[in-house]
Design a protein around this nucleic acid. Structure first.
Lengths: 246, 246
DNA sequence: AGCTATTTGTACGTATGTATT
DNA sequence: TAATACATACGTACAAATAGC
């Protein structure tokens, strides 16, 4: 098969090896190398991208550092991890259930928490008074020990006073709500954007500079339609996708 | 307000000036400079990012090239564009209606078209036989003369033989469907990912290298649930956001 | 076992880009 | 604007490991 040239741009502030690493990572996630379970040989990739073999080696070294591939002398470069996690977005969106059996071990860690007055925008979303107290939880979610999202969650402080302790005990927002007497809730709206990872993302999600993150801003409401949670979640773009089924 | 140091990483495959340009672009999109309508002075930015003023100037030059800011000697650096277009995703998702009054002038251009055999994956989505003929339309959508999405659309060739001409005449998929006797259709599913723009995206969407695009893969069905269109649309991430309302 | 082709690993030299001073 | 230091990218050559014959 003649693959043809794959386009990368020179001298635009993003190193060739990083652009190539991003492309290979995406190809792996898209299952393009599933037939062999291997990345094509370095010389083949170099020809495809129109670069020197060393540049491809730099890209593969970065992917090896991420644990996505493992190079084996004389054999080739083995793919270690390939699947993208899929997050369904619906009225019943829940993080842990959403992952389902796509990962064996699911964790929710509390990075920090605070009580603070609601900003104007947050107050409007949660339908509370501006400046009213809210509880903010910074959480990190992992699937099979790899970080998959970093979230900032706000809850009305009056109604959900014990949120921090309830989340720490269970590692799950759903379980924490139940512990506080809210047995069910609904996803009211979701806003999706994409941006470059910032410093905190890089550290917490174990990404390399220039990485892309998907950002979901979500409002959850109780069965009466009263807002109970506003959350901003950040996902590594090459690890996840969102699906909306109608 | 003391902003403190903003973290950028050196020598990691992404040039400092590009990391800084990405941060400033994101700050503009997030409305952080709305109070003045200006980017902070170069010396302030240099201090915030912990870099030399020359490096900040490189970043601002890139943003000026994109048309996002305009530097004015002696005055400062003016922000030209800041608001994001919002695309609602629902059962009734339609591009032109979705934009609504967020833009005055909406255009749909046909870049190219072809008839080709359906790949295995496409055939499965459209529920037709693998290799059955499909019509592919490459389209570019603009709002107020700025390109906002580049789409690849596939239609079963048997049912929608005149799709190319119908789209060319109207610049709208919805109108083309109506001209071909399909008065209504529904969004069945949407898949959202994010990635770096490739060469074709850069050219068609008038982006600068390194830009992020949001990718939506959508399946539309007729009122009987029969697939009528599969589309892959690519949007500049700093120009648009998606919303899902439940 | 040897031989060869394939593939990754290592080394050196050169040119250019990036960032600071 | 110039000098400096380091990163990036290319070219070439050869070494080491693996697989197939």
């Amino acid at each position: 098969m003649d693959v043809g040239q794959i386009n990368v741009q020179r001298q635009n502030g993003v190193a060739l090896w990083r652009q190539i690493a991003d492309r290979i990572r995406a190809s792996i996630a898209n299952g393009e190398y599933d037939a062999t379970g291997m990345v094509p040989p370095e010389m083949v990739l170099a020809a495809q991208f129109g670069v020197n073999r060393h540049t491809v080696r730099s890209a593969l070294a970065a992917l090896a550092q991420e644990g996505i591939v493992r190079a084996m002398q004389g054999r080739g470069t083995l793919i270690e991890r390939k699947e993208r996690l899929n997050f369904p977005i619906s009225q019943r969106t829940r993080f842990t259930e959403g992952i389902g059996d796509q990962a064996r071990k699911k964790e929710g860690l509390l990075l920090s928490s605070a009580e603070e007055p609601a900003s104007a925008a947050l107050a409007a979303s949660l339908r509370i008074a501006e400046g009213a107290p809210v509880i903010r939880l910074e959480t990190l979610r992992k699937a099979d020990r790899r970080p998959v999202s970093r979230s900032t969650n706000w809850f009305p402080a009056g109604r959900f006073a014990g949120m921090k302790e309830a989340y720490e005990a269970s590692g799950s927002i759903t379980a924490a709500f139940q512990a506080l007497g809210l047995s069910d809730y609904w996803r009211f709206s979701t806003e999706i954007t994409a941006t470059h990872a910032d410093g905190a993302d890089l550290a917490d999600l174990q990404l390399s500079p220039g990485a892309i993150i998907l950002v979901a801003r979500a409002l959850n409401v109780d069965p009466d339609g009263v807002p109970v949670q506003y959350a901003v979640s950040r996902f590594p773009a090459d690890m996840v996708q969102f699906t909306i089924a109608n």
